[in-house]
Write a protein that binds this DNA or RNA. Structure first.
Length: 421
DNA sequence: TCTGGGGTCCTAGGACCC
DNA sequence: TCTGGGGTCCTAGGACCC
């Protein structure tokens, strides 16, 4: 059996854990630039707010009902995620991190010594006691069914946070009651397609012949079908190296000058490079894109991307930033108000330092060493302690808006929580 | 005034090779 | 009248996930 442990409304729960006065109150967490609502508690959902709503459109309801609002702080959530994961690893030996708020736990063998539901309930209680994060666990024979079970565990209090689908009767009943659009692997497109074909519940899908499913939904849909019928086939074992690395942001204010665009691109290039070195890789290809504000129909619209292949795969911030600056120059257009830019690294290979006979960069090892020193200093003294001058000093127009930010209580000694007695 | 960011896999079609 | 067959690689686009 396999379990899926899912943190309930994770970002909002972290904020609530760190602001105890908010227990039982509506809470919303915003995306980068305070743009959209990306996480909200059930109390906030009950007020009619939905995930994905633009913040400014929901502001009325928020203010009228005293909803607590926070700017998303991914560093903080990642730190809390690590704490939750470590408690799970104390309980089950083999675990697999699927996302910041979801973990698969392999329970094979545990049934000999434990009641699986009791074991998972104990873990859920431990996590609640030590971190204040509510967790729901689903147990079943496949990952897709475990996801279904975890949603039942979340929905009905009677389960005590843990729901297990361990018999054929339970599987059929669960699939007949579950919303097809909420099945892992069925997106809006395939949901519409299936509705048109007369398939309206997960059970109806599971009962179709395999060839029929393959014909209409191809390989990914066929795998979902197998999983719904109890045959495990989805492998989510960790991707060690990313194949592409992107950093992009919408700007707090629109920008128009070449210098501002280049400063934003330089800053994103640095961030990509340190992620790249963090996974001990080099990139063979650099792309830069920039665009106008697609919601402003009154302004001229623009979107462009330019790509450059590097002679040797590189993880050198100086070299990649220089390439990104040329690309930014190429796509800049005077008269356009830019809302967003980004850097994308691709063609990623293992190892930070590559060589060829005709390499134009001298002493490549020293350059890599220099970049790694930047990483260490920024890790030790805080992000952007040292960087390239082209990226600017930090108070520019293009910086994000974050008006409701929770301090990094868990990771930064200078921002640690103050308790007044 | 104000509308997020970062990934993966699969498939079809074109270019190119022998 | 009649114009091969089989393969690989790359790319763009679509679909999905959190």
């Amino acid at each position: 059996m396999i379990a899926l442990a899912d943190c309930n409304t994770f970002f909002a729960s972290v904020e609530r854990a760190l602001h105890p006065g908010l227990r039982g109150k509506p809470v919303c967490v915003l995306s980068s630039n305070d743009g959209n609502i990306v996480a909200l508690t059930t109390e906030a959902k009950a007020l009619g707010i939905r995930r994905g709503d633009p913040y400014f459109k929901a502001k009325d309801i928020i203010e009228r009902n005293g909803v607590a609002v926070f700017s998303g702080n991914l560093m903080l959530y990642a730190a809390m995620s690590k704490r939750v994961q470590s408690i799970m690893r104390r309980t089950v030996e083999r675990t697999e991190c699927y996302s910041i708020d979801e973990q698969f736990l392999y329970l094979d063998g545990y049934e000999k010594h434990y009641d699986l539901v009791d074991l998972m309930r104990g873990m859920v209680e431990q996590i609640a006691l030590w971190t204040d994060i509510p967790v729901s666990v689903g147990i079943a024979k496949t990952k897709t069914l475990a996801k279904v079970a975890s949603k039942f565990a979340k929905q009905y209090r009677g389960y005590g946070g843990v729901c297990m689908i361990d018999t054929e009767a339970k599987r059929r009943k669960a699939l007949s009651m579950f919303d097809l659009a909420d099945i892992w692997g069925i997106g809006p497109r395939n949901f519409a397609k299936l509705s048109a074909l007369g398939v309206n519940t997960p059970l109806q899908l599971a009962d179709k012949p395999g060839e029929w499913v393959y014909r209409h939904l191809h390989k990914p849909g066929f795998q979902t079908w197998l999983e719904l019928n109890g045959h495990p086939c989805i492998d989510t074992s960790e991707i060690v190296r990313r194949q592409t690395i992107t950093t992009s942001r919408s700007f707090g204010n629109m920008i128009s000058t070449r210098e501002e665009l280049k400063a934003s691109v330089a800053s994103f290039a640095s961030s990509c490079c340190s992620t790249l070195r963090g996974q001990d890789s080099a990139a063979g290809c650099v792309s830069v894109f920039a665009c106008s504000n697609r919601f402003r129909e009154d302004l001229p619209q623009y979107w462009n991307m330019a790509t450059q292949r590097l002679i040797v795969p590189s993880a050198d911030t100086l070299e990649i930033t220089a390439a990104a600056m040329e690309l930014a120059d190429r796509i800049y257009r005077p008269g356009i108000l830019f809302k967003k830019s980004g850097v994308l690294l691709s063609d990623i290979t293992a190892g930070c330092c590559h060589h060829t006979l005709f390499d134009p960069v001298q002493k490549r090892e020293e350059r890599v060493e220099l970049s790694q020193t930047l990483d260490r200093m920024n890790h030790k003294y805080g992000v952007r302690t040292v960087g390239l001058a082209v990226a600017g000093s930090g108070n520019e127009n293009w910086k994000n808006k974050k008006e409701h930010l929770t301090p990094n209580y868990l990771t930064d000694i200078d921002q640690i929580m103050t308790v007044q007695i």
